[in-house]
Write a protein that binds this DNA or RNA. Structure first.
Length: 203
DNA sequence: CAAATGATTCGCT
DNA sequence: GCGAATCATTTGG
C-alpha cells in the first residue's frame, strides 16, 4: 500500500488525527516487518493547548521535535517506564502532533508478543492477548519504538505509515486521557477512535 | 469484574 | 525535588 507523504502530515492536526485512523503503522527492524492498524489517536494542538507539551510556547530539548517539520516522529519517555509515539503535524515552527494510542496487529504478531511478554502466543493468558497493543506505552513496547526513533522521518523507510485496506468505520470523539492538569482543555473532544474496535484503550 | 496502588526514570525548576 | 499524554498488579465485591 501507498506510504503517506509529507503533504499528508502537513495539514490541520484534527484532520490528520482522524485520517490516521485505519492507516497502518509499519516498523522495519532486524530485517522484519512489524505492522499494525491505527485504531485510536489524540490530537495535541500546540502552544495554545494546555494539555500539550508545547503549551505556552515551551521549547526545551524534549519538546523540540513538535516544533519541527510535519511527518517526523516525537517519541518521549514517561512515568519512568514507557515510551509514547507521536506524529508531528503542521509546518515547521508550529508545535502540533498526534499521539498514537492503540493499534490492531497485522504483521509480526509473534514478534510483538515476544517484545511485550518474552513469551510465545500459546503461553499467553486472555488478559495478555487483550493488552498487547491497546495503549500508547504498550504499543511502543510491542513495535520496538523507543528514544532512538525520536525525530525519525516517517517519510523514510524504517518507520512509516501506509494507506489501510478498510475505511468502512465510524469515528468516535472523546476526551483525552491522562491530562487532568489541563484545566478546561481536559474536556476537549480531541481523542478519536474507531467505533466498536476492541483494542481501543478507553471507550 | 472494577478500583486502588505502586513502579521507576527523566526532564525541568 | 517533583510530576509525568502509563501500566501491571493487587485487592475487594
Amino acid at each position: 500500500m501507498k506510504k503517506l507523504n509529507r503533504n499528508f502530515y502537513n495539514r490541520d492536526t484534527l484532520i490528520v488525527a482522524k485520517e490516521l485512523l485505519g492507516k497502518v503503522l509499519v516498523h522495519e527492524v532486524n530485517g522484519m516487518r512489524i505492522s499494525a492498524r491505527i485504531v485510536e489517536v489524540e490530537a495535541y494542538m500546540g502552544t495554545a493547548d494546555k494539555a500539550a507539551h508545547s503549551y505556552g510556547g515551551k521549547r526545551t530539548p524534549r519538546v523540540e521535535p513538535m516544533y519541527g517539520m510535519a511527518g517526523f516522529a516525537y517519541v518521549y519517555f514517561i512515568y519512568g517506564m514507557y515510551y509514547c509515539f507521536n506524529v508531528v503535524t503542521q509546518e515547521e515552527g508550529r508545535a502540533e502532533a498526534v499521539l498514537i494510542r492503540a493499534l490492531e496487529p497485522i504483521e509480526g504478531l509473534d514478534s510483538m508478543i515476544y517484545n511485550r511478554f518474552k513469551k510465545k502466543y500459546e503461553d499467553l493468558n486472555r488478559y495478555q492477548i487483550k493488552n498487547l497493543v491497546n495503549g500508547p506505552g504498550k504499543l511502543c513496547n510491542a513495535m520496538l519504538i523507543d528514544k532512538t526513533l525520536n525525530k525519525e522521518d516517517l517519510c523514510g523507510n524504517r518507520l512509516y505509515i501506509v494507506e489501510g485496506e478498510d475505511s468502512n468505520f465510524t469515528i468516535k470523539s472523546a476526551k483525552r486521557v491522562g491530562i487532568d492538569y489541563a484545566e478546561e482543555a481536559k474536556d476537549y473532544l480531541w481523542r478519536f477512535y474507531i467505533e466498536g474496535n476492541p483494542n481501543v484503550s478507553i471507550k
